[in-house]
Design a protein around this nucleic acid. Structure first.
Lengths: 105, 105
DNA sequence: TTGATATTTCGACAAATGTCGAACAATGCG
DNA sequence: CGCATTGTTCGACATTTGTCGAAATATCAA
């Protein structure tokens, strides 16, 4: 993976987080994930559970979730009626590596 | 600062990093900063030094730098002809806190 | 002063984005 | 089956964004 490709991928992730509603969605999912990690079980965050305070329609939510997924920030999978979302840990590590070079600060 | 305000600020930062050219600018600055930290002196990254491989005009660069500054990601100050840029360390800590909750991973 | 360097401001404009409503699809329940 | 849940697809549309060229500004040097 060339640096140029990396940059493009990273920019896409940041762009995905650069919308207030999408960021809220993502933060909700992050918090859910931590909750579930604490409980020692895998997280089952279906969509409507993540809509805390978001005042946007269902089509828009669907669009945003897809955008987060396309950016590689989250993984999704169907389970019956529901769409299960989870944070992509690999990608989180990548973002951290960029923002915390050397872990100083 | 309400959580809503925080979210708005964060989204703005991410949006600023969500453009390829702006991200490149920022990464260049990050790297310069580290170099200078290693050398034990303050960094003097004037603009044209940060343009590595960026194929955009001066007006666009100026626009992008302002956007990064407005988002709070970088600080700028004039020094004669040149514009000195530096990463805002406080804000970096904030971003890391969001992406590395509990530092697990 | 004349001129070079570094950056900004100003309009303009095509392209991308965020959102919507209406309709559609898939699943599960009684 | 008929119907409610959960999410998606499809246009549409106003707003925002990224970029440009031309002109302006500021600083320094000869």
């Amino acid at each position: 993976m060339s640096p140029k490709t990396d940059l493009r991928r990273l920019a896409r992730m940041f762009k995905a987080l650069g919308n207030e509603n999408r960021l809220q969605l993502f933060v909700n999912l992050l918090e859910e994930s931590q909750l579930d990690l604490a409980k020692g079980r895998t997280h089952d965050c279906f969509l409507t559970k993540l809509l805390g305070g978001l005042d946007i329609g269902a089509p828009t939510v669907s669009h945003h979730v897809k955008e987060l997924a396309d950016a590689g920030l989250i993984d999704t999978q169907r389970d019956g009626k529901q769409l299960i979302c989870s944070v992509n840990p690999e990608v989180m590590r990548e973002l951290r590596a960029l923002l915390a070079p050397g872990d100083q600060g």
